[in-house]
C-alpha cells in the first residue's frame, strides 16, 4: 500500500473517531457535572472534560480551514503542494 494513501486513510479514520469521541466526552462531561455528587473535585473533572471536548470540536472544525489557509499563502509565494484532505464528518 502506498504510504501516502495509508496516511490519508489514517487521517480520515482519526477525524471520524475524534468527532464521535467529542460527543461521548461532551456527554460524559455533562453527566459528571450534573451528577448528584456533592464533591467539587468531581464536578471540576466534568467541567474539564466538557471544555476539552469543545476545544477538540473547535480544532476539528477549524483545522481544514487553517491548512487551506497555509496552503493558499504558500502557493501565493510560489510553492505548489496538493490541497489538504478535507475529512468527511459523519
Amino acid at each position: 500500500m502506498d504510504i501516502i494513501a495509508l496516511i490519508k486513510d489514517i487521517i480520515s479514520k482519526t477525524v471520524v473517531v475524534s468527532w464521535l469521541l467529542f460527543f461521548l466526552t461532551w456527554l460524559i462531561g455533562w453527566a459528571i457535572k450534573g451528577a448528584p455528587i456533592p464533591m467539587g473535585k468531581v464536578r471540576r473533572i466534568g467541567q474539564g472534560l466538557v471544555e476539552d471536548a469543545v476545544w477538540g470540536a473547535f480544532w476539528v472544525a477549524i483545522g481544514t480551514t487553517i491548512f487551506w489557509l497555509i496552503t493558499y499563502v504558500s502557493a501565493y509565494i510560489g510553492n505548489a503542494l496538493p490541497p489538504p484532505p478535507s475529512p468527511q464528518l459523519p
Partner: peptide
C-alpha cells in the same frame, strides 16, 4: 505534509478523549 496533518488530527483526538 500528510504526516503533519495526521499529527494535527491526533492532537484533536487526544483533546476529545474522555
Amino acid at each position: 505534509y500528510y504526516l503533519a496533518i495526521l499529527t494535527f488530527y491526533i492532537g484533536v483526538l487526544i483533546y476529545s478523549l474522555p
